[in-house]
Design a protein around this nucleic acid. Sequence first.
DNA 1: GCAAAAACACTAACATGTTAGTAGTATTGC
DNA 2: GCAATACTACTAACATGTTAGTGTTTTTGC
Lengths: 150, 150
Amino acid sequence: MSASASTRVLHRNLPMLLLRAREKMMERFRPLITAHGLTEQQWRVIRALNEHGPMEPRHISDICTISSPSMAGVLARMESMELVTKERFAEDQRRVLVSLTETSVDLVRVISKDLEAHYRELERKVGPEIVERVYRAVDDLLAGLEEEGE
Amino acid sequence: MSASASTRVLHRNLPMLLLRAREKMMERFRPLITAHGLTEQQWRVIRALNEHGPMEPRHISDICTISSPSMAGVLARMESMELVTKERFAEDQRRVLVSLTETSVDLVRVISKDLEAHYRELERKVGPEIVERVYRAVDDLLAGLEEEGE
DNA sequence: GCAAAAACACTAACATGTTAGTAGTATTGC
DNA sequence: GCAATACTACTAACATGTTAGTGTTTTTGC
């Protein structure tokens, strides 16, 4: 019993496909992160701060694709877990600078190794040329989406 | 101030890229759905049931990429909103069959039209050949991920 | 036949996502 | 100068995601 032609959605569902692919990948990677007591989002924040150095919350939000309201909670929990420190700017009391603690930097060393190994294993299984095609296609999609107007 | 070579993650982050692309797309489509009083997940469930007919929760979960515990809440809210009905199988009291209400079927007609229009607009903006490349690349990625063993 | 195992939907506890709005601070326009 | 505006992080309220575990019903193994 399926829908009549008039109510069926005709195009394929691109957001859904991207969601499914991401979930399939995270099924493999998430356990590596949670094994160290971190959530997926906490790891994204740590990784961003490790690569870019201390940043302000809204910048971290952009890089990690985590909304500002979610980020408030994530950072609060990370601060109480002593994964990050926060300090207000002297010149602008609205702004905050978030930095990694030594604990986090140590975690990066350990977890990165694990992730690298599993990533290479995945690339081998799927085939590097397919992974590369995904990167290029989605990069181009994003570029198309971010173009102004028209 | 960026990380030393020894702690930098070397490979690109595929799950992150997929997340970002999905979010960019949903920025455009989500308002069309919430304008009708539905959440993104509720729309996924309605759409799946509309295309496949009445289904059991775990099957809906698979199709919509919503975990079973999340699905319990989603369906409970949808039932109280009179978007779906649930009935237990007579032969197997563990199982439940979920069906759309007339309200939902009507919603599909309206929302689908909106989505179709916006989807075509997006495809035009991004370029159909790029969209097609994303479909093919991610399809292949998923196929590679789902292969057994080795 | 019946005890053990599996299947199914669900609950519990907590983290995060989404939307709207707030408090405090800095900037702008005049 | 100062009122209006904008900016930044945050809170509030609710829906969903994640992991572990529960209650009930079927199925399996013997």
